[in-house]
Write a protein that binds this DNA or RNA. Structure first.
Lengths: 208, 208
DNA sequence: CCATTTCTGTAGTGATGACTTCAAAAGTCT
DNA sequence: AGACTTTTGAAGTCATCACTACAGAAATGG
């Protein structure tokens, strides 16, 4: 069995974690091969042998990020508690000391050059998946009976996803943990009215 | 009087507008000199003669963006109407047909490489200024008496700024005008509870 | 007219981007 | 041991980056 040939001189998982941290902080385009290899402690040929190309390394980094740092919809008895937990978890995660502020999936590739289109689409899909997961939890609330049947779970998920996305920018801008937790709480204040069946929907525009 | 020497062969304002659109869509680093000059209809030496360098061109583009496309805190009789108007204006502005989705100031430089630190700091400052403007309007509401004296205007401004920032990402991700307007309305639903003086603040979920 | 000033296009500058070539090194297999 | 396989470091490839040198073009002042 075993591996033939000269054995790899570095731990692939450790190197990947380092790469992920660089991407998290500097984004896809902002992370140069020079910086990546320096952080990973290896030379370019080793990187390419182990990870194929920069884009593949980034995709693996995203997967690792989601596993190790990503938010999970909280395991809670009600939809309300799950969403509140998610928002508060985001506030905490985006302000971890000694880690880059904000969410890698939200911040790593906001602008699109032709050559990074694949990256952008991939991250957008990951965000869409996260929003959909949230929506599913809201649907579960309807099934469980803690949300009324008529509630617009798509609109609700869009709203809370918007707040979470915005928290990433705010974290990068220096809003601290207490500030983001206050935002999370503020976003929950309207919950009862928002989830009151068709009520909120009939008021068009809320502008007056 | 008059200008000596060969007159400029292009309209500086028109060229700047084109440059701004490129930066808006592709961000600072994503906009190459090649693409910029192509969009502006000029060659590199003309660009440098008129705008000094890429960073100066970008800063001027940001100023133009804020003048022509930026959100203003709505001119409304109450703080509530002003904020509601601001959110709805954001939903509309970020989904203008034939314009890049989302806000240039939020999206043009989320990640920071060493060489774009100045750009990032400049945009962060612009965002901070926008948030501060919103906070001032809330303070005005306290002065006018349509908000109670104890209201935490900093926290409120942070919350609505977060929603606006998040709307930019959502717009880039394809959430349409109706979706963003629904988000704007959802963000306003908790207004009465949020602005009920010290009420919301006494719940100290923010510290754990 | 000529001198002066400023702009414009062509063509290049050095630096840095992602990625490779290649021979030596370091293992396994028989 | 020696054939084989794979990794590693040093150096190099080619494209693209922001930016510029330079000479000719197009205006004004005398």
């Amino acid at each position: 069995m075993a591996e033939r040939g000269r054995p790899r001189g570095f731990d692939r998982q450790v190197a990947l974690r380092r790469a992920m941290e660089v991407f998290w902080e500097h984004g896809y385009e902002g992370a140069s091969l020079t910086e990546l290899t320096a952080a990973m402690g290896i030379n370019a040929p080793s990187l390419y042998a182990a990870f194929s190309c920069k884009e593949a390394l980034f995709r693996e980094s995203v997967r690792l990020y989601e596993q190790q740092e990503g938010l999970m919809v909280a395991d809670a008895p009600t939809a309300r508690a799950a969403v509140a937990g998610l928002l508060r978890a985001g506030a905490l995660a985006y302000t971890e000391p000694d880690k880059p502020a904000g969410c890698m999936v939200v911040l790593a590739a906001t602008t699109y050059t032709p050559k990074t289109e694949g990256i952008r689409d991939h991250l957008r899909e990951r965000r869409r998946a996260a929003s959909e997961q949230l929506r599913q939890r809201l649907e579960q609330g309807v099934t469980d009976g803690d949300l009324p049947p008529g509630v617009d779970t798509r609109a609700l998920a869009d709203y809370f996803t918007t707040v979470l996305n915005g928290m990433s920018t705010q974290a990068r801008d220096g809003v601290g943990r207490a500030g983001l937790l206050a935002v999370a709480d503020a976003a929950m204040v309207g919950w009862d009215l928002l989830t009151a069946g068709e009520a909120g929907r009939s008021e068009p525009s809320a502008s007056r």
